Simulated assay, not measured.
Amino acid sequence: MSDAVAPAGYDPSAYPPFAVTSDIVVLTIRGGELSVLLVERGNEPYAGCWALPGGFVDIDEPGEETARRELVEETGLEISSFHLEQLRTYSAPQRDPRMRVVSTAYLAFLPDLPAPVAGDDAARARFFAVRDIEAGEVTLAFDHDQILADAVERARSKIEYTTLAAAFVEKPFTLGDLRRVYECVWGTRLHPSNFARKVLSTPGFVRSLDVRGASQFEGGRVGALYETGDATVLHPAILRPTADEEDER
């Protein structure tokens, strides 16, 4: 903790209460659906409402460390390594009824995870299908519906031009497994052979292992197995189908 001394003439009570929080959006493919991890708040405000895992940043820790710590404390999911990136900062003056709170949101992409176990100030923790939240079947606390919407759009966009779709599957994987990630994240069906052709013609996206194994998402169907290649950016990009392209299928 910092041992800095307040300068002379500085009166902390003259300033309004202000806090910084970190929230984490954990996206995964679960039961064939793009899903998000939520916790039921055990304390006010919004007691009994579902929310993203997160909490106040300690004075001596970075915001990313807060996001990882809160994930463990509120859901019991201690994950050794996963892709975590900063999403954006949310600073609307009235976003938290307690005081002025600015939150930095983080986004994690992960393969299917074990069932979470609630802890700390969370009453329950579970995965929800993103489409159920988008349909208004689940109401989130604070401005977490907006944070989730931004995170989902980030995911939908990033798998167009990066290899992050592979972060949703265990290695090795079949092309069918990878296709199911795109279908779940984008919410649309893709033509299997066209998708395979695009993936295999994109330099560095995947590398064949020259063996066959069971699919993770397609009922154990046996297929050729792949691992991620050396690329991080896709050239050319694998773009979402337009509305007209969806109608043609």
Rank of each mutant, 00 (worst) to 15 (best):
H144C: 10
D145G: 15
D145W: 02
D145K: 01
Q146Y: 09
Q146F: 11
I147G: 02
I147W: 01
L148Q: 00
L148F: 01
A149L: 05
A149E: 07
D150E: 08
A151H: 05
A151R: 03
A151F: 03
A151S: 08
V152K: 02
V152H: 02
E153N: 11
E153G: 06
E153C: 05
R154L: 13
R154A: 15
A155T: 02
R156A: 07
S157P: 04
S157K: 09
K158S: 15
I159H: 04
E160V: 03
E160I: 08
Y161S: 01
Y161V: 04
Y161G: 04
T162Q: 01
T162Y: 00
T162G: 04
T163D: 07
L164Y: 08
L164R: 12
A165F: 12
A165L: 06
A165Y: 12
A166L: 14
A166H: 06
A166T: 15
A167Y: 09
F168D: 00
F168C: 10
V169R: 09
E170V: 08
E170K: 13
K171I: 08
K171E: 14
K171T: 12
K171N: 10
P172V: 01
F173T: 00
F173A: 03
F173S: 02
T174W: 05
L175V: 12
L175Y: 09
L175Q: 01
G176C: 00
G176T: 09
G176I: 05
D177V: 01
D177A: 02
D177S: 05
L178P: 05
L178K: 04
R179L: 06
V181T: 06
Y182E: 05
Y182L: 07
E183H: 02
E183M: 03
E183Q: 01
E183W: 01
E183V: 05
C184W: 04
C184L: 03
C184D: 12
V185S: 03
V185M: 02
W186D: 00
G187H: 11
G187I: 06
T188P: 03
T188D: 00
T188V: 15
R189P: 00
R189W: 10
L190I: 00
L190Y: 03
H191I: 10
P192K: 13
P192W: 10
P192I: 15
P192D: 13
S193Q: 13
N194A: 14
N194R: 12
F195V: 11
F195D: 07
A196N: 12
A196M: 06
A196L: 01
A196I: 04
R197V: 08
R197D: 14
K198Q: 15
K198M: 15
L200I: 14
S201W: 08
T202Q: 07
P203N: 06
G204A: 13
G204W: 07
F205K: 01
F205Y: 15
F205E: 03
V206D: 09
R207F: 11
S208Y: 00
S208M: 02
L209N: 05
L209P: 04
L209M: 15
D210E: 14
D210G: 02
D210P: 07
D210H: 15
V211G: 00
